[in-house]
Design a protein around this nucleic acid. Structure first.
Lengths: 222, 222
DNA sequence: TCAAAAGTGTTGGCTGTACACCCATGG
DNA sequence: CCATGGGTGTACAGCCAACACTTTTGA
């Protein structure tokens, strides 16, 4: 790094694209801005970086403050730094994305947000700043990563059935999958183990519950 | 983004991991630091972000100032922001990586660098700051991306032979590949077209020269 | 006993891998 | 004419996609 250049002070923020599956749709957590600029527009939950915390920590904090949720899967996505992307001045935003199970949330609007809500990805309201661009990139990354890692499990609770997992894949990928092939594939990954319990869910045969062999681990394959 | 938080001023820099293949080895461009802190250690070429430029622009500039090279393939890698990663204060570094052909360079040490040099990836000197971590991540990304994109072509000039391209893959992946299968595979991608020229390179049959069908495009496959 | 979703195996095509021989050139 | 690397075709195996029937439950 060139030390002869004078460092220019810049505000650094983190923004988090929070995905969850609700009502069989891929949804996104947004906050309605309660302050200028762009008051009233919906925006990603985020926060400015504090002097003593690292980026991952700031992302976790933004999530906790915005939604009350902790311990979810969080991964850095990309950093956005166009000079004119925020009218308040020079703001570089490190974007993260998070996946959370649909049950695991306790929505509580942050102090500066008017409201918090879930929006289907294909019915988003107008977004503040360049957050539309951030969301598009996060969605692309999510779809790509389904194909070579086990992140999809992060959408589910501790135990889940194979048809539930299949629904996650179908919703994120936007296309139906063959039940038999899906089952063979997911079992061949060696990442899940069966429990003795079943899930009863209507007037039909109950499905066996599985759990992750190494909970919390994201495994890459292929 | 929480507007009630007070934005803390932070210095933002970009650092570039420049890969090239020289002497049949994967090499990395480093600058020897000519100023404190960490004077005398080798570091990635980088620069502080200027008020009017975007991140990609700063990365291109860091590269041009460090090496005199323009127009190479450059991609954002990851952003590093541990609070203690730079003893001068809070510095968030947006890391990029670049691939360049082995011919295309005119080394000129930046004003604040004592020297500039190429180092084999498996014989790196001690690096300044957390640059070792950045290099490790860049190397991982490069290997992964060989498998599903056409970035490897960025190591070669405008025209190249198939055995030359194969050497790039073998060097980056660190393992030999079958000539016949490699040729079939690369032709099946539909990204290269043959020229009428040949390359004479010793006392054996000359190899046909190819060129990219869409120069500059990075194509994803599979 | 019926509807509705869960669970199970087999087959054929395709892709990726292993492998052996001929070609063009310079010395 | 020989050494050196370039260029081509084939055969086998493993993987993935397509597909039909039986099981368990609640009403």
């Amino acid at each position: 790094m060139s030390v002869q250049e004078t460092p220019q002070a810049v505000a650094v923020s983190v923004e988090v694209v929070v995905f969850s599956i609700r009502d069989r749709r891929l949804k996104l957590l947004l906050e309605r801005r309660g302050a200028e600029p762009q008051r009233g527009l919906w925006a990603l939950p985020g926060t400015f970086l504090r002097p003593d915390e690292d980026l991952d920590g700031a992302a976790h904090r933004a999530l906790a403050e915005g939604t009350g949720v902790t311990g979810v899967y969080l991964e850095q996505l990309y950093t956005f730094g166009r000079p004119d992307r925020d009218p308040r001045g020079r703001v570089v935003s490190v974007a993260y994305y998070a996946l959370m199970p649909s049950d695991r949330l306790r929505l509580c609007a942050a102090a500066d947000a008017e409201a918090v809500g879930w929006f289907a990805l294909d019915e988003l309201p107008p977004l503040a700043f360049d957050h539309g661009e951030i969301v598009a990139m996060a969605h692309g990354r999510l779809r790509a990563k389904l194909g070579y890692s086990t992140i999809a499990f992060q959408f589910l609770g501790e135990t889940f059935t194979i048809p539930e997992l299949q629904a996650v894949y179908e919703i994120v990928l936007g296309k139906p999958l063959d039940r038999r092939n899906f089952r063979k594939w997911v079992l061949s990954l060696g990442q899940i183990e069966e429990t003795r319990e079943l899930r009863r869910e209507g007037r039909h045969r109950p499905a066996r519950l599985y759990r992750l062999a190494d909970p919390g681990d994201i495994v890459f394959f292929k």
